[in-house]
Simulated assay, not measured.
Amino acid sequence: MIARALLAALLLCWPFAAAADVAVPPLSGRVVDQTGTLSASDAAALTQRLKDLETRKGSQVAVLIVPTTQPETIEQFSIRVAEAWKIGRKKIDDGALLVVAKNDHKLRIEVGYGLEGALTDVTARRIIDEIIAPQFKTGDFTGGISAGVDRIIRIIDGEPLPAPKPEVSHSVDPDMAFNIIFSPFGFIGFLAIAGISRGLFGRLLGSGVTAGVIGAVFWFLLGSIAVSVGFSIFAFILTLFGDAIMAASQAASRNAGRGGSGWSTGSSGSSWSSGSSSGSSDSGFSGGGGSFGGGGASGSW
């Protein structure tokens, strides 16, 4: 476990051979299914319900099902899609997006600024945990998506969720914790802690302080002493010798550049070749210019 975690952190910190991000699919309708999960009739029924919502309330909701979002997290991919599709009315920002990454077993509800008061982060998380994920776990993707969309529509219509059941856990989700830790923000946070500690306490003592802070963060988020100790050691070494490692890396890059060798990675964005997408009968649909700020929730099954 510790070895795998250390390897993941090392790969994060070593900026070589970056993989291309998955391309944002075109907005071909309110329901875009790149996996063939939904039948044509199910996609059409879902599309009609979303059309009715827009006619009645003006709000726009879209569903996207993809095989994977790798190498990005579903949070990074979903906000890129939301920003590209611009679901919701301009300056009202009343859009919502349900993204399902089927092979990754991840999903997310992305919420526009204008809906954050009704479809809060907590509400979105409950919809995922209590309504969608349980059906996904049984293999009923159509039922889970339909029930989740129905609940989102009812929330937009002003119907609150019932009181949460006592047994529902709101503890830290290990998957979410790892997404936070191994995100660009997590890495930037580590660099800030290391820089401040070394500046205040010197190289050796500052490395120890950084190791203690990183260990405490991992213990709080993951609840594992073994993992926190492992990452404390890694943080100590990286803080102590990080500048030397980066200098050696830069020197190697300059030498490689003088040698004239290199490799081409092709296009900057990869895409899936999955044939037609569900929702083609809704091809006239387009986003209304809505804006998103990262509100919503993620989950897994």
Rank of each mutant, 00 (worst) to 15 (best):
W14S: 05
A235R: 00
W85S: 07
V209M: 08
E159V: 00
G114N: 02
A17M: 02
G266Q: 01
L27M: 11
D243V: 06
I196Y: 06
G257A: 11
P166W: 12
F190M: 06
L64D: 02
L7E: 02
W272C: 09
S59H: 04
I225H: 03
L221A: 11
A8T: 11
I87V: 14
L53M: 08
D243N: 09
S277K: 09
S268Q: 08
S253H: 10
I155D: 00
I65R: 10
R125H: 05
G202M: 05
Q48G: 04
A23R: 09
W301M: 11
S28I: 11
D140W: 03
I237Y: 00
T73F: 15
S59Q: 01
G95I: 08
D282C: 08
P162N: 06
I79P: 12
A297P: 08
S39Y: 05
G299C: 10
V227G: 05
A226C: 02
G189M: 04
S271M: 08
F187I: 14
S268M: 09
V172P: 08
W85G: 07
P134R: 05
A44K: 13
F185W: 11
G257H: 05
Q250R: 15
P174D: 04
T68W: 07
L238K: 02
G215Y: 08
G242Y: 02
G88A: 05
P67W: 14
L46Y: 12
M1Y: 12
A297W: 01
A226T: 09
V32S: 04
H105N: 15
A40P: 07
G144W: 04
A244G: 07
W85Q: 06
S224N: 15
A216L: 10
V63C: 07
L161I: 04
I2M: 07
E75S: 15
I79S: 14
R154F: 00
I153F: 01
S276H: 09
S267K: 11
D94H: 01
A124F: 06
G206E: 06
F16T: 03
C13F: 11
V24C: 08
T73M: 15
A3L: 10
E54M: 11
A194I: 02
A118M: 02
I193Q: 03
F220E: 11
P25Q: 03
L205P: 04
P134S: 14
A62G: 14
